[in-house]
Amino acid sequence: MNQSWTIAKKELRSYFDSLVAYLLIIIFLAFTGFFTWISGNGDIFFRKQADLNVFFQTAMWTLFFFIPAITMKMIAEEKKSGTIELLLTKNINTLNLIIGKFLAAFLLVCIALGFTVVYYITVSRLGNFDHGATLCGYLGLLLMSAAFIGIGLFASSLTNNQIVAFLVALIIGVIFMFVFDILAGVQGGWLGELFYTLSINEHFSSISRGVIDTKDIIYFCSLTFLGITLSEYMISKRG
């Protein structure tokens, strides 16, 4: 676990040493800020409700693009530059390596979300504010981010090209966000039920409504776990 932390520290530092971290955080805040506060049609003042639902919706979509951008280089670049050979011949096991990278991406998302606590404080003073539901919304965002990071890491482990990793992560994301949703709509019966269960959208919206169901938590955790395990498998399978 110490070694995962070593990896996470190094990855985080490399994001903050380059412009990547700052750019992503600024873009995230600009997007969510714009739609939450000043977009006019649909913002908080338009809805006249003291809640962060608009923010959660925008944040979900921003993270949907934001996370593949963080994870795309994590393994693909190591493969491309050959540093993966250095890492894997060091005294660290592959799982700890992936967990370290996962942690780095997750912490970066946490930092970005951390800035939005300002929104929370502001809105909570505007009117009748449901703290529980809002905290659930944040929990939902974190769980969903973890799942996206798992997917992103897996995509990055497939290739040594960052762009390919980014696009593959988006495609898998789209499948989980839309395709399963649509399929659930057109398919009836148990198959429809299955697609419904597989859709990220459904699980996220049920959490962000303020309902914490173990089903949803298990869903996001298993998606994360699957992503990490598959990345580990892809890296171990070489030569």
Binding site: G82, T83, E85, L86, T89, I92
Partner: peptide
């Protein structure tokens, strides 16, 4: 792994 020091071909490094 802890007993081996390895310098790979092309010497990959974090630039």
């Amino acid at each position: 792994k802890k007993n081996i020091g390895y310098l790979p071909e092309h010497n990959p490094l974090y630039e």
